[in-house]
Amino acid sequence: MIEFCGVSKTYPDGTHAVQDFSLSIPARQITVLVGSSGSGKTTLMRMINRMVEPTSGSIEIDGQDISKAEPVQLRRGIGYVMQNAGLLPHRKVIDNIATVPRLTGVPKSQARTRALELMDTVGLDRALAERYPSQLSGGQQQRVGVARGLAVDPNILLMDEPFSAVDPIVRDELQQEVLRLQSELAKTIVFVSHDIDEAFLLGDQVIVLAQGGEIVQQGTPEEILANPASDFVATFIGADRGKRRLSVSQTQARGDDRVLVDAGGYPVGVIAAPEGRLAVSSASPKSRSVSNKTDQAGDA
């Protein structure tokens, strides 16, 4: 569990990135910090591995104040996945994944064996092991980034807008991959995003942030979607534009086809299209995870 207690960050030029921020991030779940730029979401995440030091307040991981920890040691115990993967361009894929274990003194052969296993875990072909990052596609690089983040088997994984630079199809794939990995590994994941759809898809808990790290709403995606706490949240999740208000339309389709449109008339999905290509019955991994969440909510 990660606990923020009254954390503020003021930069020397006087800008308040974060003011009096308190939050409890539960273990073994995905918590998404979502907000537009200037909301302090990345600053907050970087405080967890002491890349940014708070001006005041404290952060605890499992009851231990991290300001007492040695930053380099702390970072080696926390997985970190960033935008554009942040891979070392002069190291092969396998050595990139083995980087952190090597830093902590794991023998090279052992670290490499583990790196190959991790390539399987994140769905990378082992044939790519001896390539350099520049020889991979953006999606493959991002998978390497995730594998590197998992290399020391950390309890905590920080993901800083990891998929914002890849194309939508690859992003979908990677998001599903995160959900699959999480169902197997159950890490405490803190995920930063500016994309509310990504937040709703991935988050067990979603924290909507306004300027200066102000929490405007926190809860499950379902809670936030059904009851936006303010006009700000409604705008942010697109409710005010009718993006979330769906209705069945037959007028836009032919024959027996029935499609779903939002209040703005934008077609968002298909309910029935007998001659169409969209599979209707097969459940995606996400639909399972949604029902899981409802169970958890019921238990609590």
């Binding site: 970087r46 591995n49 890349m51 380099v72 040691q73 970072r75 080696r76 115990g77 970190y80 960033m82 554009n84 942040g86 891979l87 070392l88 361009p89 002069h90 980087t99 952190v100 830093l103 902590t104 590197r148």
Partner: peptide, 27 residues
């Protein structure tokens, strides 16, 4: 040397010295 690569090396736990010899110097 790309700043984001150096930042990512720091975030993954390279010490200052390791960052210089293993990341900045080769790049």
């Amino acid at each position: 040397v790309p700043r984001d690569v150096v930042a990512s090396a720091a975030a993954t736990g390279f010490s200052g010295r390791q960052r210089f010899f293993e990341v900045e110097l080769p790049l």
